[in-house]
């Protein structure tokens, strides 16, 4: 469903490199967890997948399945990606004063409907649909009349992201630290919600710092992102190992392997007789 190869990216209009050759493949029905120390590029990866203009892709490729055909993700505008099933639950959801949550959700939902050739919903119909989704996530109805994310608590903002996911039922959902800031009960409710949205045809990428959410939503693969690269991949036990021992050992191990790889490479490239000069 998603194939990322050698992805390199920097902050647009600067020389600041963030992703330095990242590979990741996600198949339908799978759950991937991406972990990694602060500042390693997790959110940047997710925003690049959504098409954020702050970043410039400088190398590599991202392919995504659209109607059983693989397409270059970078050929699509952000809104097209969303309509084709890419969804990002933001680490820091944006506040939009003056735009009501219900107006926003309906506009978004109807764009997706339009794209799929389904009938758009009028405000009354949508209201009922929305109320059902709110119930599904144990959210209060007062959310929908308020401005998008404005004065929402941290946890409420995260829930609002998952509400959007529930409304849009994306094929590829990337949840960027949705668990951070959720209390124990909210985490359970949100995780249960997300689990109910899972099918064999969609896929989930969870960016997280904690094992906690992975107890509810069990990952098939766990990756560690460090300085813009995946330095280690494994199964769910990798997350447990990180929870216990932190990243230090992993980073060291990867440095060593990188160094040995590089020194091996340099040896291979050196012509005989040049040793020691």
């Amino acid at each position: 469903m998603l194939v990322i190869k050698g992805l390199k990216a920097k902050v647009a209009d600067t020389d600041k490199e963030i992703l330095r050759g990242l590979d990741l493949t996600v198949k339908s029905g799978e759950v991937h967890a991406i972990m990694g120390p602060n500042g390693s590029g997790k959110s940047t990866l997710s925003k690049i997948l959504a098409g954020h203009p702050d970043y410039e892709v400088t190398g590599g490729s991202v392919e995504i399945d659209v109607n059983f055909r693989s397409k270059n993700l970078f050929d699509m505008a952000p809104e097209e990606r969303a309509r084709n099933g890419v969804f990002l639950a933001y680490q820091y959801p944006v506040e939009i004063p003056g735009v009501s949550n219900s107006e926003f959700l309906r506009a978004s939902f109807n764009e997706i409907c339009k794209h799929q050739g389904a009938d758009e919903m009028d405000p009354l119909e949508f209201d009922d649909f929305l109320k059902a989704k709110l119930k599904f996530l144990s959210m209060s109805e007062s959310f929908i009349s308020r401005a998008v994310n404005v004065d929402f608590s941290g946890g409420e903002k995260k829930r609002n992201e998952i509400l959007q996911m529930a409304i849009l039922s994306p094929r590829l959902a990337i949840l960027d630290e949705t668990d951070s800031g959720l209390d124990v009960d909210s985490l359970r409710i949100v995780s249960e919600g997300v689990n109910k949205l899972r099918t064999k045809d969609n896929a989930l990428v969870l960016i997280t710092h904690y094992q906690r959410i992975l107890n509810h939503i069990v990952p098939d693969h766990v990756h560690v992102l460090y300085k813009g690269r995946i330095i280690k991949s494994g199964d769910k036990t990798l997350a447990m190992q990180i929870e216990k021992h932190g990243y230090d050992a992993l980073i060291k191990e990867s440095k060593e392997s990188k160094e040995s790889r590089e020194s091996k490479e340099s040896k291979e490239f050196m012509a005989p007789g040049e040793h020691g000069n």
Binding site: G51, P78, E79, V94, G98, V99, A107
Partner: peptide, 25 residues
């Protein structure tokens, strides 16, 4: 532009997103 992107990343076309933000203003 963060507000614009947020709306667009939910499938809302640029022109509609612009109108929504202006209407809000």
């Amino acid at each position: 532009h963060d507000e614009m992107f947020y709306l667009r990343s939910r499938g809302i076309p640029e022109s509609t997103a612009e109108a929504m933000l202006c209407q809000a203003f």
